[in-house]
Design a protein around this nucleic acid. Structure first.
Length: 117
DNA sequence: AATCTGACTGTTG
DNA sequence: CCAACAGCCAGAT
């Protein structure tokens, strides 16, 4: 994947997603400044094989697991290994595990690093 | 520059 | 709930 400003922003954002939390392709696109580039984010994830980028924490809209290079089972396993519960293609406790870097004005105080199990 | 390709998404039937 | 469709976007040809 090329070394563009967009992909660099996307990668740095994905790297910040905490263990046990997830963000949608659209969320990442929005954080990267391209609200409608969800599909492009998916393409970046698809071609990013860096071990320091937790691409399995980037999921589809509505709490769906989404794709993973034809190995969605592995993606589910990785998410479960981080404490998430996955039923079929859907992630449980969706609103609780969805990562939002700045939900309000006091991120640190309200921010939860791990889901309430 | 034009076209094709999807780890996407919202709408519609 | 599922499938088809139509937008959308960055990257690769």
């Amino acid at each position: 994947m090329p070394d563009t400003a967009f992909s660099a922003r996307v990668l740095s954002i994905v790297r910040r997603i905490p263990v046990g939390r997830v963000a949608t392709y659209g969320d990442v696109a929005h954080m990267a400044g391209r609200p409608r580039a969800a599909r492009a984010v998916g393409n970046i994830m698809r071609t990013c094989h860096r071990h320091d980028v937790p691409c399995h924490r980037v999921v589809a809209a509505g709490g769906l697991v989404g794709g993973y290079g034809g190995n969605e089972g592995l993606k589910r396993s990785l998410l479960r290994a981080e404490g998430l519960t996955v039923a079929g293609r859907r992630i449980r406790q969706w609103t609780a595990v969805r990562w939002q870097p700045s939900p309000s004005r006091r991120p640190a105080a309200t921010q939860r690093t791990r889901p309430p199990v």
